[in-house]
């Protein structure tokens, strides 16, 4: 956990995101019908989803840790990761809807992956509702950790298995390969993967700041109670 106080990866995150901002708009991209220049959105839309998944994954990891060791700070990490994940969910949805507006014609075209994303959002809202419905701290931490772990695999199925069974406008669905040979060329990859790492790091950074604030708040409350 000491790594969250280190500076180097935060600097790296900022550098990577600035690099993708610049190179994402300036580098050459393959011209494709329908997509045209909007293909550059892949540098922003997809990495944001990756960051969301990473945050939800961290949250589940810390929920498991909480159940095993019963340390209260693990629960704070889990909930702050979910809060930040929801923020990134909203970014991902907005970038996706803008992109869909220009390429598929409508912001919400009933694509299976869009619908699945909306349901995944409901799951995490349910998690937050569950948390707010319990007053007792330890009980809240325990029950919400259990729900978090229970919901995560179902969300993975929802986002990555079900859309593949039906026809979808997203690449990688309806039997198409995702991130396949003809989706991206090497010139795009040198922007895309740094973008993913950069946004994941930024997401983790926001989550750690929120965690540290919550931790300080808790400490002050405990001090005042004494």
């Amino acid at each position: 956990m000491t790594i969250i106080y280190k500076k180097w990866w935060k600097i790296l995150a900022v550098l990577l995101v600035f690099y993708t901002l610049i190179s994402g708009f300036l580098f050459k991209v393959p011209s494709k019908v329908i997509l045209n220049e909007s293909i550059r959105n892949v540098y922003f839309h997809v990495p944001v989803w990756f960051a969301m998944l990473a945050l939800f994954g961290i949250s589940v990891y810390y929920s498991i840790k909480y159940l095993r060791y019963g340390n209260e700070t693990y629960d704070i990490v889990a909930v702050e990761a979910v809060n930040t994940g929801i923020l990134f969910y909203i970014f991902g949805l907005i970038t996706g809807m803008l992109w869909a507006k220009f390429t598929w014609g409508e912001a919400w075209s009933g694509d299976p992956k869009q619908n699945s994303a909306a349901i995944a959002f409901l799951i995490y809202c349910a998690y937050l509702v569950l948390r707010s419905s319990i007053d007792e701290e330890q009980k809240r931490a325990k029950i919400s950790s259990i729900y978090n772990i229970f919901a995560f695999p179902i969300m993975i199925v929802l986002l990555f298995v079900l859309p593949r069974l039906t026809d979808s406008l997203h690449p990688g669905n309806g039997g198409n390969p995702a991130f396949g040979k003809y989706d991206m060329n090497n010139q795009m990859r040198i922007v895309f993967w740094p973008a993913c790492i950069g946004w994941i790091l930024i997401g983790v950074w926001i989550a750690t700041i929120r965690y540290r604030i919550r931790n300080l708040e808790n400490k002050t409350i405990n001090k005042l109670n004494k």
């Binding site: 349901i119 995944a120 799951i123 349910a126 419905s133 319990i134 229970f150 919901a151 079900l162």
Partner: peptide, 18 residues
């Protein structure tokens, strides 16, 4: 979490949708 019928629906519906 306190015998709440609404909570049951809120928790289970998103999970059963897939």
């Amino acid at each position: 979490a306190g015998n709440n019928g609404t909570l049951m629906a809120v928790l289970s519906f998103p999970l059963i949708i897939p």
